[in-house]
Nucleic acid binder design. Structure first.
Length: 153
DNA sequence: GCGACAG
DNA sequence: ATCTTGTCGC
């Protein structure tokens, strides 16, 4: 698909593409989830309601957005050390935290999804990133998907 | 009006 | 996201 046409107009609609599959997967879990760490944004969104918000409200669970890149907002560069952070603002509002999860790696964009505040969200992300840039749950999911994609070929 | 734009 | 080449570090 051309990167310019449909992709451009569908920006900010990640929820509508991925939420159905994610919800189906959550229903298959043997154990009940306590919180959801999303590979995408929460409040740091064009309409203030990203994937993490959708999933949190629908599942009535704590949810946080932990995106690999910026969608909206402005910020300064956080310090170079793990744990360093800087606020993300959009339209005069604090919508997230740009957090360095490892020394000298690109920071992640943390934002509130549902039933959790920004400080707690950042803390949880840090607790899940003792070893890699992205939260362990996200890494495990990515690894599983690429493994399945490989075996499907 | 044009470009930017989570994964 | 997906693909691909090249480099870096444990």
């Amino acid at each position: 698909m051309a990167k310019s046409s449909i992709r451009a107009t569908s920006s900010g609609l990640l929820s509508f593409r991925e939420a159905p599959a994610i919800l189906a997967a959550l229903r298959k879990l043997d154990t009940e989830a306590d919180a959801i760490i999303c590979d995408g944004h929460g409040l740091a969104h064009p309409r203030g309601f990203g994937l993490a918000c959708h999933l949190g409200v629908i599942c009535d669970l704590a949810a946080i957005g932990c995106a690999k890149s910026r969608l909206v907002g402005e910020h300064r560069a956080p310090g170079i050390a793990r744990g360093a952070r800087t606020p993300l603002h959009h339209r005069g509002r604090r919508v997230g935290t740009v957090l360095r999860t490892r020394d000298d790696v690109r920071p992640v964009y943390v934002s509130v999804g549902h039933r959790i505040d920004l400080a707690e969200a950042a803390t949880l992300v840090l607790r899940c990133t003792t070893r890699y840039r992205l939260p362990e749950p996200t890494r495990l999911a990515d690894a599983l998907v690429s493994r399945l994609a490989r075996s499907a070929a």
